[in-house]
C-alpha cells in the first residue's frame, strides 16, 4: 500500500514536468508577446526593459529551467497583469472560492445523485425512477453555462429570489448562502446526473445477487440490508466515476465562475489567457493538472478501503 502510494506520487513528477513543458512550449509559440497592446504599440525600449524585468530576454530554454527550478520550491513566478504579485499567492486567493464552490458542488452531486440512483433502483419503473432517469439524461447533456443561464433567468430575473451575480466569503470562508445556491447547482448537476445513472445500474445489479436474498431471508431489517449489503457493494462503480467527476468539477468550474462572477482560479485562468500572462497560465495549468492527478490517486486508494479484495 505505502509502496503503491509512493510509486504513484513518483509518477506524478514526470507528468507534471511534461505538462509544464508542453504548456510552456505552447505559450511561447503563440505569436506576439504579453506586451502587445491593441493599437498603441509600446516603445522598443520599454519592451526591452519589461523583458529584462520578467526574464523574457533570456533564451527560452533557460526561462523554462528557471521556472522549473523555482516551481520545485513552490515559487510559480510573478504575474504580469496583477502588477508583480506572486502567482502562487493569486492562486491561493482564488482557491478559496474555487475550493468552497467545488466542495459544495461535490456534496450536492453525491447527495442528489446517489440518493436519486438508489431510490430509482429500489422502485424500478416507478414514476420516481422515470423522473430520475430523465434528470440523468437531461443533466448529462446540458452544458453548465446553459443550465446556469436558465437558472438565472428563472430564479434571479423572473422570480427575483436569488442574486444574479457575486460571491462574498466572510467568516470561515462560508459564502453568502443565497449567492451560493445557483452556482452550486449549476456545477453539481452534471456529476449528479452521472452519479444517479451509475448508482442506479450498480444497485440494480447488486439487488439480484444471492447474498442480498440471503440477507433478506435471514430476516434482517430492510434498512440494514440496504446499508450493509447493497450500498457497500454498489459503491465501487460509483467510486470509479467520482475521480474523473471531481477532476471535471474543478476544471469545469471556470465557466461557472465566469457566469456568476466568482473570483476563483478558473476566472483568473480565463483572464490570464486573454492578457497572455505567462506566469499565471503556467501556474494555473500546473495546479489543475495536479488536482486532476490527486483526485484520481485518492479514488484509487479508496477502492482498497471500500473493497478489501483489492490489493496494491
Amino acid at each position: 500500500m505505502t509502496g503503491y502510494v509512493i510509486r504513484r506520487l513518483l509518477w506524478l513528477a514526470p507528468v507534471l514536468f511534461f505538462v509544464a513543458l508542453i504548456t510552456f512550449v505552447l505559450m511561447h509559440i503563440v505569436p506576439g508577446g504579453p506586451w502587445d497592446t491593441k493599437g498603441r504599440p509600446i516603445s522598443p525600449q520599454l519592451e526591452r526593459q519589461l523583458d529584462a524585468k520578467y526574464g523574457l530576454d533570456e533564451p527560452v530554454w533557460r526561462q523554462f529551467l528557471t521556472f522549473g527550478w523555482n516551481a520545485l520550491r513552490g515559487d510559480l513566478g510573478i504575474s504580469f497583469q496583477y502588477q508583480d504579485r506572486p502567482v502562487s499567492e493569486i492562486i491561493r486567493e482564488g482557491l478559496k472560492a474555487t475550493a468552497v464552490l467545488g466542495i459544495f458542488a461535490t456534496i450536492f452531486a453525491l447527495v442528489v445523485g446517489v440518493s436519486l440512483g438508489i431510490v430509482s433502483a429500489l422502485r424500478q419503473n416507478s414514476i420516481i425512477d422515470y423522473a430520475s432517469v430523465f434528470f440523468a439524461t437531461f443533466g448529462a447533456s446540458t452544458p453548465s453555462f446553459v443550465l446556469g443561464i436558465l437558472l438565472i433567468v428563472i430564479f434571479a430575473v423572473q422570480l427575483g429570489w436569488l442574486p444574479v451575480y457575486g460571491w462574498d466569503q466572510q467568516w470561515w470562508l462560508i459564502p453568502n448562502p443565497k449567492q451560493a445556491i445557483l452556482p452550486t447547482i449549476t456545477l453539481g448537476v452534471l456529476p449528479a446526473a452521472y452519479l444517479a445513472r451509475i448508482t442506479r445500474s450498480s444497485v440494480l445489479e447488486v439487488l439480484q445477487q444471492d447474498y442480498v436474498r440471503t440477507a433478506r431471508a435471514k430476516g434482517l431489517h430492510e434498512w440494514v440490508v440496504l446499508m450493509r449489503h447493497i450500498l457497500r457493494n454498489a459503491l465501487i462503480p460509483i467510486l470509479t466515476v467520482s475521480g474523473p467527476l471531481v477532476a471535471n468539477l474543478v476544471t469545469g468550474s471556470f465557466i461557472v465562475e465566469t457566469v456568476f462572477g466568482i473570483p476563483g482560479i478558473g476566472k483568473q485562468f480565463v483572464t490570464s489567457i486573454f492578457q497572455r500572462d505567462y506566469g499565471m497560465i503556467m501556474g494555473t495549468t500546473l495546479f489543475y493538472a495536479l488536482v486532476v492527478a490527486m483526485a484520481n490517486l485518492v479514488v484509487d486508494l479508496l477502492y482498497g478501503v471500500v473493497d478489501p479484495r483489492i490489493r496494491y
Binding site: V15, L16, F18, V19, I22, T23, L26, M27, A247, V250, T251, G252, F254, I255, F269, I273, I281, T284, T285, Y288, A289, V292, A293
Partner: peptide, 10 residues
C-alpha cells in the same frame, strides 16, 4: 493529465 478545456483554449 491536461484538463481538456484548458488545453483546447491554449
Amino acid at each position: 493529465a491536461f484538463p481538456a478545456l484548458l488545453a483546447i483554449i491554449l
